[in-house]
């Protein structure tokens, strides 16, 4: 992007990681409080979009794990898979199961819901990042051609 915005460039890198951490926190928090995979995915998307605005769509795409389409596909696959363990215990599809893992100082609560939410997170982040990056790419291409 030109002209260079020094403040934005310096801030963008730490902001990217802070936003991703916030996205992860919102994803995990969604278990008992407002949040979850959808909102977390949107925050992660905001991180990707901010990075793309400063360093270009191609750079942001390289930072995206797996790339947009596979990330979204993996997310949907994870969400679909999270309903399968229930069939083993002869419950209806998507019946969710909870486990508790004692770690001594605290109990780690695990569940298939978390798997589902992580899937939603990936699907939202991947699919929307695909749209946003494609859009930014076309804007960049138009800017490179110069004013009409």
């Amino acid at each position: 992007m030109n002209p260079r915005a020094l403040m934005l460039e310096k801030a963008a890198r730490p902001l990217y990681w802070i936003m991703l951490a916030a996205a992860l926190w919102v994803l995990l928090r969604g278990h008992n409080a407002p949040g979850g995979g959808f909102v977390g995915g949107l925050i992660a998307l905001a991180a990707t979009a901010a990075y793309a605005i400063v360093f270009g769509a191609a750079a942001a795409r390289r930072r995206l794990p797996l790339g947009p389409l596979p990330l979204a596909a993996l997310g949907v696959a994870l969400a679909l898979f999270s309903g399968l363990p229930a069939l083993w215990w002869e419950r209806p599809y998507l019946s969710h199961l909870w486990f508790s893992l004692p770690l001594g100082f605290t109990d780690l609560k695990l569940s298939t819901v978390l798997l589902f939410d992580a899937g939603v997170f990936g699907a939202v982040w991947g699919a929307l990042a695909g749209y946003v990056l494609a859009l930014l790419r076309s804007v960049e291409a138009a800017a490179a051609e110069g004013p009409p």
Binding site: L69, A73, L80
Partner: peptide
């Protein structure tokens, strides 16, 4: 619902 969704995933994985 599930079969087309799984097919879409498979087709996406084979991109």
């Amino acid at each position: 619902v599930l079969l087309p969704l799984l097919t879409a995933l498979l087709a996406a994985a084979l991109y």
